[in-house]
């Protein structure tokens, strides 16, 4: 294929099917559309925030088949055939996910812009490590930036969520 033709093919919309928060979406997207832009602009799921556009701040973290990923670092086409969970899909029904509740109780957010990314980073972390130490928590959080809280209450919220999970029947 000549380079010009290759370019044309590369920019032609691709059909993808992605399950987001349990709902299946079929869309034709530009191959270079970021997953974060797909979620925000195509699906209107604006709870996924974009803080730095290059994978440092962690605000755009979502779950891809249960694993935390930075939605600004992957293309929407890479999510084709996969399941995505965003902050909007964290809680079942109108209530709060236990982690959201723990954040609320411990005042683990101020401006709230980074919060969805922290929550989605922590969901798989707590599943893999249900009783983390403070050091393990701080390590797990170190890929997400928060400028308001000083992290202390986020650590406290993770401890609370772990404690309540252990105490749950």
């Amino acid at each position: 294929m000549a380079p010009a033709q290759a370019m044309a093919t590369m920019s032609e919309p691709q059909s993808i099917t992605v399950t987001v928060n349990g709902e299946r979406y079929q869309r034709a997207v530009e191959p270079r559309l970021l997953l974060s832009d797909f979620l925000r602009h195509e699906l209107g799921l604006t709870g996924t925030h974009v803080g730095c556009e290059h994978g440092v701040c962690g605000a755009c973290t979502v779950l891809l088949d249960g694993a935390a990923v930075r939605s600004c670092l992957i293309f929407a086409v890479q999510a084709d055939g996969h399941e995505v969970t965003t902050v909007e899909g964290l809680a079942a029904g109108d209530g709060l996910h236990p982690l959201q509740e723990a954040f609320r109780r411990e005042h683990a957010l101020q401006c709230g812009f980074c919060t969805p990314g922290f929550l989605l980073t922590l969901v798989p972390f707590l599943e893999e490590n249900p009783q983390p130490t403070e050091e393990e928590i701080r390590h797990a959080l170190s890929g997400n930036l928060c400028r308001c809280t000083g992290y202390q209450n986020i650590v406290a919220a993770v401890k609370r969520a772990a404690r309540e999970r252990a105490e749950a029947p």
């Binding site: 799921l45 604006t46 709870g47 925030h49 902050v87 809680a91 609320r104 401006c111 709230g112």
Partner: peptide
Amino acid sequence: KRREGLAKLTGREPYVDD
């Protein structure tokens, strides 16, 4: 208890880009 926060925790807080 803090009044702010519920919308921020659930992704419904409408920041300008949203």
